[in-house]
Computed example of a mutant assay.
Amino acid sequence: MSSQVRNIDDALATITEHWQPHRLASVNDYDVKVVKIQGEFVWHTHPDTDELFMVLSGELTIQLRDRDVTLGPDDVFVVPKGVQHCPKATAEVHALLFEPKGTVNTGDAGGEMTSQLHELA
């Protein structure tokens, strides 16, 4: 990806489906992804990496086996590697994700919600 200014709102405006992350930028071996979230995802883990969620708008609940974590705009939460989690949102949420390149959105769960990483135009 070339060095260029990227606008988060413009990037989000191009996303038409929920749970389909799009690469906004790359930093070393990490991808910065934008995503629209609504509904409930699948329970999954990322055995080899932490996952950072930053909510831009809306309210996101990250269900953990021992508690729920609720994030609002400008909140950040890191799900530690190997921790089973399930994001959900009653209304649409706009978020940034920070993950190592190649991280699959459904982690070890796979299934129909697994997305290929989309590139922004």
Rank of each mutant, 00 (worst) to 15 (best):
E17V: 10
H44C: 07
I8T: 12
D75H: 12
D10F: 13
V104Q: 12
V32Y: 10
E112H: 05
M54I: 07
A89T: 08
G39V: 06
T106N: 03
K88N: 14
N28A: 15
L52H: 01
A25L: 13
T16R: 09
P80F: 10
V32F: 06
S26R: 15
L12K: 04
L117K: 07
V34Y: 00
V79Y: 06
L96Q: 00
P73V: 02
D108H: 11
F53P: 00
Q63Y: 09
N28V: 13
H118I: 13
Y30V: 01
V5K: 13
Y30G: 03
T106L: 04
V83P: 06
E59A: 06
L64T: 09
R67Y: 05
D68E: 10
V76M: 04
F77M: 03
P87H: 03
E17Q: 15
V79L: 08
Q63T: 11
L97V: 10
L96H: 04
Q84E: 15
V27T: 00
Q20F: 12
S115I: 11
E92R: 07
H85W: 02
E40Q: 15
R23S: 12
D50R: 00
V104W: 01
T16W: 02
V79S: 05
V42R: 06
I15G: 04
V76I: 03
D74A: 14
G110V: 08
M1K: 10
V32H: 04
V35S: 02
Q4T: 14
R6G: 09
V93Y: 04
V42P: 04
L96D: 01
V93T: 02
I62M: 06
G110Q: 05
E40C: 10
L96Y: 06
V35Y: 07
M54L: 14
P80C: 08
L12I: 13
A89Y: 08
D50V: 00
E112T: 08
I62P: 05
D68T: 04
V93N: 03
H46G: 08
P73C: 05
H94K: 14
T16H: 09
V5M: 13
V5H: 12
S3H: 13
G110P: 07
I62C: 11
G39Q: 12
D75C: 07
T45G: 01
D68C: 02
G111N: 08
V104C: 06
A109S: 09
T90A: 14
V104A: 11
V76F: 11
I8K: 06
W43F: 09
E119L: 13
Q116R: 11
H22D: 01
H118W: 12
A91G: 13
G110C: 04
S2A: 14
H44L: 11
T61K: 06
E51F: 00
C86T: 11
A95V: 01
P47W: 01
E119A: 15
D108E: 10
H46A: 05
H85D: 00
F77R: 01
L24D: 03
T49W: 08
P100A: 08
V5E: 12
T103K: 05
H22C: 13
E51Q: 10
L56K: 08
F77W: 11
H118F: 11
I15Y: 02
P87C: 01
G82T: 05
K88L: 15
T45I: 10
A121G: 14
D29F: 09
L24H: 02
Q84F: 02
H94Y: 06
V93H: 02
